[in-house]
Design a protein around this nucleic acid. Structure first.
Length: 120
DNA sequence: ATAGTGACTTTAC
DNA sequence: GGTAAAGCCACTA
């Protein structure tokens, strides 16, 4: 029997990461944010069953969401601030305004447009 | 295995 | 209102 190479762990490709259960739950959670509402990264993480993984949520959105049907623009910082840098920030504000969310100084009022998961 | 990084959050001034 | 530091998770320069 010729020895076979042991399958080594390697870096996940994008396609593989998309199959990652955590990624799927994150995307599903973001997708469940109703139009006109927003959620924080930490909130998404918690809803997805990944408490304290807010930064991970941010990186997942940054890497995959750009060209999918996921409403990434409804995810903001816990204080309602747009955390994206560069031109994408302008897009996010535009997308939010397009669905009736008031954005002032790169920020929204979480008390008004914050998503309450129990109202789905 | 260690160090650095980031679409984060919380706490403490 | 604001900044600073520390804690946080997972990925990687």
């Amino acid at each position: 029997m010729s020895p076979r190479p042991v399958p080594r762990k390697r870096v996940l490709t994008e396609a593989e990461s998309l199959q990652d259960e955590r990624v799927q739950r994150i995307l599903a959670t973001v997708d469940s944010i109703p139009e006109g509402r927003v959620a924080s990264y930490g909130q998404v993480a918690e809803e997805a069953g990944l408490p304290r993984a807010a930064r991970f949520v941010g990186s997942v959105l940054r890497r995959f969401v750009a060209n999918r049907g996921v409403p990434w623009h409804r995810v903001l910082g816990s204080d309602g601030t747009i955390r994206v840098v560069g031109g994408t920030a302008r897009d996010q504000a535009m997308l939010l305004r397009a669905e009736g969310v008031t954005v002032r100084n790169g920020r929204v009022r979480m008390a008004e447009v914050g998503w309450q998961p129990d109202e789905e």
